[in-house]
Design a protein around this nucleic acid. Structure first.
Lengths: 289, 289
DNA sequence: CCAATGCCGTTTCATACGTTACAGAGAAAG
DNA sequence: CTTTCTCTGTAACGTATGAAACGGCATTGG
């Protein structure tokens, strides 16, 4: 009767996190990262995983209000039972009263779901085919915040194929790149709300040269969509003063995953060659991603 | 190779159900009904729940191919870990039911929810305070795929405060930056699975100089976590050959939103000054973000 | 009806487990 | 610089745990 554990142990852990000593926080993090499996192991295993000693584990669960380790495990198991029985058991008190983190999580997830649900599969498949075509060169362009997305996209695409290039640096130098664009090539543009004029003009000129444009934009559609071959609208509003790029990133990862899957033979051989070339400093072999 | 448990234990149990004696079937049914929690209890508890004796339990798990009860529990925990990490437990009947887009959306949303739910609020708040402190300089560092995240983070942070810098270029040039790091400064590192050695060594040296390190890593914790002041574990597994950065990006946006909100007076005046300075080419006034 | 065999629980035992006490290291305060 | 206090790992302890031996019981075949 010492303590009533109505709320979850994870929550209790987070609540009293600042009461913990530095060494006690290590197993706390390990437990939260591998919840709740780490806590179902023996004290010795749990301690070894967190790289602390056994007594530290016991002191930790003591601070959580448990009088013994078995009692702690019992509580974990009961919680796990409830969690597995009702799969969508969200935190019961999760009304709109949740903190910013919870509200952000919900908003972002809604954006992702709506974005992917509303996306025409034909459009998606066409973009996949375009980006997987080895004969085309892929150019990527983004504005203030789109730049980083272009970089992320490139980092993956470069593994899968040759001819991937991010247009960066000062906009004044972009026209030079414009010369390289041909009707065979693809320009991927990231342009959301408060559409950047320099990005827009570049895209329009590229379109004039016949380049295929793939546009990531928000639900209100950048003006580039008028000249784009394929437009991918993404939901971006969240309870923040800023817009969210999470749904955009998700879409990027979906494209990468699909390209990798659908053209796996080519991708595989390329990745294997890459691994052979890339001698890691410590000599450890790289696994397939 | 005493026992290879490629398929799930539950399936193995059903397969060899008719080889069991009547009394052995009782705990088998109990385990399947309360899977896998019942098997994670002690032999005595499991036996009591199934109303059989201890040795019956041991004979049962012996027939499943395990040489000891702890080995059986270990297998259960590993299976549970895999199940909780990639929640394909959703729509179990619809194995390949949804297409890749839907499965990605679900997985990514789960990652986001779990990541934010398990995040200690104290840790989050400490990072916010650190990044909002105008007296500290913020350095950002990322590996192959983390680089883009660092860039995205910087693009926002630069609006909110001065002294934000991404460490980029060849790793050989990084030591020069190391000289600038002081105990007052903050190093934000992105390091996930297949942790990059050059990133690790840089972080370790920075820590040796007393720099506060904020680490974004996966649930298996980069070795940098040992020297980091604050570790933010993120779930990254999706039904793809690649890992996902979506939850990491969400966390970044949560940080930005919170910093903006909590230190709004400073942020607001800074944004207004920025707008005054930034003469948009078409003369259109910029709105507040 | 009897004997044999397979099945299951009770008892016993060794071990590994959780637990406690203690001492050393390190930081904070004087 | 010294003292005090907090924190953390080592070591020792008692116990509960998993595992093995044994015996009774029911079922089956003769």
């Amino acid at each position: 009767m010492s303590t009533k554990h109505t709320r979850s142990i994870a929550e209790e852990l987070r609540r009293s996190f600042d009461r913990l000593t530095p060494t006690e926080r290590k197993p706390a993090r390990v437990l939260l990262a591998n919840y709740p499996v780490a806590g179902l192991e023996t004290v010795a295993q749990f301690a070894a995983r967190a790289e602390v000693s056994g007594p530290t584990i016991l002191r930790l669960i003591g601070k959580l209000g448990f009088s013994s380790y078995p009692e702690f495990q019992q509580a974990l198991r009961e919680e796990l039972t409830a969690r597995l029985q009702s799969p969508l058991a969200k935190t019961p008190g999760a009304g709109a009263g949740g903190d910013l983190l919870e509200r952000m999580a919900e908003a972002v997830c809604d954006n992702i779901r709506v974005t992917l649900a509303d996306l025409p599969r034909a459009e998606f498949d066409a973009v996949v085919a375009l980006l997987a075509d080895p004969r085309r060169t892929i150019y990527l362009l983004g504005g203030r915040f789109g730049q980083a997305l272009a970089e992320y996209f490139r980092a993956h695409l470069r593994v899968l194929r040759k001819g991937v290039q991010v247009i960066s640096g000062q906009p004044a130098t972009w026209p030079e790149t414009l010369l390289d664009l041909s009707p065979k090539d693809v320009l991927v543009v990231f342009d959301v709300r408060r559409y950047q004029t320099d990005v827009i003009t570049f895209a329009e000129r590229a379109a004039a040269r016949g380049t295929q444009i793939v546009l990531f934009t928000d639900q209100w559609l950048s003006p580039i969509s008028k000249v784009a071959a394929h437009t991918l609208p993404v939901h971006i509003t969240v309870p923040s003063r800023w817009d969210s790029a999470v749904a955009t990133l998700t879409l990027i990862e979906c494209l990468i995953a699909t390209i990798t899957e659908r053209h796996w033979p080519q991708a595989r051989s390329r990745i294997e060659q890459l691994e052979a070339l890339r001698q890691t400093p410590d000599g450890a072999p790289l696994e397939l991603p």
